[in-house]
Design a protein around this nucleic acid. Structure first.
Length: 477
RNA sequence: GGCGGCAUAGCCAAGUGGUAAGGCAGAGGUCUGCAAAACCUUUAUCCCCCAGUUCGAAUCUGGGUGCCGCCUCCA
């Protein structure tokens, strides 16, 4: 298979990618906690793993891609209480929003999309297993994982237990209630007890709900298995979330949770992290009002996934201009001309197609095999565009165009020209303009023009009604 | 305080030992009734600073400076 190399957070190095079972990839990415709308950061995460997944399939792997939805969590409960919804209502609403955004961004649906609330019994079993093996303890209706029992704790973040303990001590001093319950400040909750009026499930430890880290560990185990090939997420999940997942899964199973840990970097606004707590985030919905999914995707792909992107208003506009160039390139042969050329195809032209495709696929593959270097891969697209504009033979241009669209597709770019689609407000304005021209024609008794406008609008589904006062009204017929 | 990352043209950004991809913006040109768009050409003797290793470094080593992230919910 291909000499793909990926950067593994666990080793801190690029490594040759060899999946557990040759030819197949089990891949899991941490999905959203559905308590609010998704922002550009979620878009980056989703697009990064979408492209990785697409490329692995393109490379010939049989991929099972799982992305979860965390639909029970303190953030959901708190937000729901603020706005007067039941937690499950809020979670459902934002799950729909998330799906709509993913669809709008041309993100491939995951093969399996487990939701945390579907796996409560499995989580209880997981936690019970950890208690029985001495890795977890019950305390006041909660269940905590005892970090000291997992000697490798800190291996993902590359910090030893002692350093983490001294760092954590400061933080936890204020949380006096928890201090009573936890043996060590690093211990984290697998199960949190809930009041009788609160959302929760029955468990051996009473009414309660699962902790975040347990959710992912359990879903991976139940959906993909005990060891998977790729586990991904945003870089902020390295610690504590992924470190804790490792501690849970590896304590219970005794072997690695994931062979390769991939983490994408952040989107920044004015050189600062974009986050909900800073209030400087852009929702996907807002961005899609102004920019196409391709524009957003191109902007994100022009930077390597492990580097931060400083988002500015201009950067999206610049990406949009670049995208235009690629779209123009695909239009360098008209559709009629293309149909003729395809009809007239010969073994020689097929050979030309093949050679051009091979050349650029080779460059594309070389870029992507180097830890998914999408920035270099995007450069290949622009190089093909150059060739298209320089090429004088239509037949050859067509070959380049098919190479361009094929590679763009693997990156999830549609190269669909949206510049000729107008919104309803614009369409209404255009109708008003036509009515003005028609009124002027009628005033000059130019009824040929006036009737042409009326007939053509009727064909387009717009009915005109001249009123007694000389004005004209319109409506959709 | 601990750990990690980054520093390449006006802006964004690839490149980890062999002589600087790509995008945007700018300049010149082609086209054009005017305008816009589009296309073509062009744009870093040099990669934060200092010292070192090497035939050779943006790329490796040591030191310095600056910026950012994680250590608390966060993609």
């Amino acid at each position: 298979m291909s000499p793909l190399q990926v950067f593994n957070t666990l080793s801190g190095k690029k490594e040759d990618f060899t999946p557990l079972t040759a030819g197949t990839v089990l891949m899991y990415a941490c999905g959203p906690t559905v308590y609010d709308l998704c922002h550009l950061g979620h878009a980056r995460m989703a697009i990064v793993y979408d492209v990785i997944q697409r490329y692995l399939r393109y490379s010939g792997y049989k991929v099972t891609f799982v992305r979860n939805i965390t639909d029970i969590d303190d953030k959901i409960i708190n937000r729901a209480a603020e706005i007067g919804l039941r937690p499950e209502q809020l979670a459902r609403e934002n799950t729909y929003n998330f799906w709509r955004d993913m669809h709008a961004l041309n993100i491939t649906s995951p093969d399996i999309e487990p939701r945390a609330t579907e796996f409560i019994q499995a989580m209880i079993a997981f936690a019970t297993g950890l208690i029985d093996s001495g890795h977890a303890y019950v305390s006041g209706g909660d269940v905590y994982f005892e970090v000291a029992t997992f000697k490798q704790y800190g291996k993902l973040k590359k910090q030893d237990l002692q350093e983490l303990v001294s760092g954590a001590r400061e933080q936890v001093r204020s949380q006096s209630a928890l201090k009573e319950l936890k043996r060590s400040p690093l211990d984290f909750a697998l199960w949190k007890s809930a009041g009788s009026g609160e959302i929760g499930w029955e468990s051996p430890w009473g009414h309660g709900r699962p902790g975040w880290h347990l959710e992912c560990s359990t879903m991976i185990k139940n959906v993909l298995g005990e060891t998977i090939d790729i586990h991904g997420g945003g870089e902020d999940l390295v610690f504590p979330h992924h470190e804790n997942e490792i501690a849970l899964s590896e304590s219970l199973h005794g072997h690695p949770l994931a062979r390769y840990w991939l983490h994408n970097s952040f989107v920044q606004i004015d050189a600062e992290k974009m986050s909900k707590s800073l209030g400087n985030f852009k929702t996907i919905q807002d961005l899609l009002k102004t920019y196409s999914a391709d524009t957003i995707r191109l902007l994100l792909l022009q930077t390597h996934y492990r580097g931060p992107i400083d988002f500015t208003g201009e950067s999206l506009t610049a990406a949009g201009h670049g995208l235009q160039r690629l779209i123009r390139a695909t239009q360098a042969v008209s559709s009629e001309e293309a149909a003729e050329l395809i009809a007239a195809a010969t073994p020689e032209t097929s050979e030309l197609d093949f050679q051009i495709m091979q050349k650029f696929r080779g460059e594309f593959t070389a870029a992507m095999d180097s830890d998914f270097n999408t920035a270099s891969a995007v450069a290949v697209l622009f190089n093909i565009a150059d060739q298209i504009f320089l090429e004088t033979k239509a037949q050859t241009r067509l070959s380049y165009i098919s190479a361009l669209t094929s590679i763009a597709q693997t990156l999830g770019l549609t190269l669909e020209d949206t510049s000729h689609k107008v919104g309803n407000d614009t369409a209404s304005g255009i109708i008003e303009l036509l009515l003005e021209i028609r009124a002027s024609a009628r005033a000059k008794k130019d009824f040929a023009t006036s009737d042409l406008i009326r007939d053509r609008l009727v064909q387009l589904g717009v009915k005109l009604m001249d009123t007694a006062g000389g004005g004209t009204e319109w409506e959709k017929s």
